[in-house]
Amino acid sequence: MRRAERTRFIITFLSPALLLYTVFVIYPLGQSLYISLFNWRGVSKRRSFIWLENFQKVLHDEVFWKSLKNNLWILLIGGFLVMAIGLALAQSLQRRTRGGNFVQNIMLFPQIMSLVVVAVVWQFVLNPSIGLVNSGLALLGLKNLQHAWLGEVTTALPSVIGVYIWCGVGFFALLFSAGLQNIDKELKEASQLDGASGSQQFTRITWPLLWPIRKVATIYTVINGIQVFALVYLMTRGGPDHGTDTLLSYLYFHGFENYQFGYATAIAVLTFLLTTFVSLSILLIYRKSPMESAR
């Protein structure tokens, strides 16, 4: 009796969430594979089955590779700097000071702001005529360093990466702070008594013990680095000359400006495969804790 009730309860409680998730998340994900095999233009019903031709075209599309490269720059340079600054910031926050508390309180603001706000704020800051950066450079007498930051091929991507870092540092500092707090204080004090220098303490104790946090941070870096869309789309529309396009902004361009659904979905499928591959590799690299092997 109770068993039947239990089963009924499980089904009623799970089904709303499972239904929505299956219909609107899993099903579209599976359907991607199917749509990517069609030459499908516009909202019309006209479409023709073309096997893997979309993939073939995407793989020969220079802009696709350029977008992938931009993604990798954001992921590697942006991701590295976010982690490095985040870790340094977390270290600085270890000692409780009034300034530290203030920074701790506000450091997540960029993350919780809408990307629309972030994009517009930085468009202002980087604006060639009224922006803070260029007027600051003028004040310092460095007019020759002024740029149309988001409009020039050489400065657009680095500017976007800068804003990406601005958004992300707070979260990584939070993550590393939690990790640092978990490290045994006695361990550090003991090493100090043994005459370990600050840098030795960091490389021998802090860094290895941060292993679980580093694993999480790396996974986040990859996922965040691949899913950049709104920031780029809002700040530069992927320009100039696709110089800041990412995989997802290029997908949007084909899907909703050119209305080539098949082609756009092929980009999505490739991006999905890439994400899966990279995530699995990270899990494999971080499979075994270094502490376990040392013991």
Partner: peptide, 29 residues
Amino acid sequence: FRGSQFLSGLFAGGMMFPNFLVIVPLFLL
């Protein structure tokens, strides 16, 4: 229950890939 682990993983898996990847099929749906 049998399959509850799998379902937990299925839900959690959604955090591993960008939502925007399914935007075209979602739009069509």
